[in-house]
Amino acid sequence: MKRILQALLVLLLVSLMLFGLLRIVPGNPVAVLMGEHANQATIDRLTAELGLDQPIHVQFFRYLSGAVRGDFGTSYSLGKPVSGLMGTAFVNTLLLSLAAALFAWITGGLCGLLAAIRKNSIPDRLFMGFSLLGISMPVFMAAMILQYVFAYWLHWVPISGTADWRSFILPAVALGWNSAGSIARLVRSALLDTLEEDYIDTARAKGLGKSGVLFRHALRNTMLPTVTMMALQLSALLSGAVITETVFSINGIGRLAVQAITARDIPLLQGTVLFSTAIVIFGNLVADFLYTVLDPRTRKEA
């Protein structure tokens, strides 16, 4: 319960900071919006209509009470409610992130597992090399290489868009590669640490087979740091989604945010960033709960 309240407090402060940051921008956003030739009367009328003539704290509470009810205002540049625009975009981002997360967890987990079992073997070196590549490669580079090779050169998948499920393959791999790398390295080192614990020797001594030791004892304890890591990856995934969506022309939340910046569309930018941050905070909360489920030792403190 304390955790939930804390998360809500952070979310409130986040929205306050975001609101403040976007109001520092010099100039009246309406004047910017209407261009150089708008006359003062029109600007004033629109400013009043959008509620921008109110004191800043009134604006903030008005925005906040709207946001709680799912009303994030109206986009300046597209003339539609921000919540509607975000709803459509969110489906794409969700599909992309889920596919990327699945790719990251499965390949990352498996590679880490295999690498740890056969420490210092050729597959170990190979997997670790690949994960290092994923961690140090900028997301846009991975995206563009994949796009160039598999879409442009080999014609295996569409170059961009969201027409069918195959067009999600490359973006998901490009976006998930980085996380897969971090997860593989973490699983490997956590598993290697666990395999040196006394209770593993005990399990072995009582005659449990190799896979029994691995699945019943070692893996369970490797799950702990991995779950936290996966939750932390959520933030990285949403950050990377901005780039991936731009490269593959996917109409998601990230691309919407980039468009909002280009069009100087404050309500849209505010909505997309606030929404993404809320998801990250929620994800961390879920990870905290999962942690207490997986590790009874932490239950008392929580």
């Binding site: 952070v10 979310l11 402060l13 986040v14 900071m17 975001l18 940051l21 976007l22 520092i24 921008v25 933030s235 990285a236 949403l238 950050s239 990377g240 901005v242 780039i243 990230g254 945010a257 980039v258 910046i261 930018l269 997309t272 960033v273 993404s276 941050t277 990250v280 905070i281």
Partner: peptide, 18 residues
């Protein structure tokens, strides 16, 4: 906590916008 709660890329975009 606030700074770390944002997805880093989006926070960077907002600050750069400002």
């Amino acid at each position: 906590d606030i700074v770390l709660a944002f997805p880093s890329m989006l926070l960077a975009m907002v600050i750069m916008y400002t």
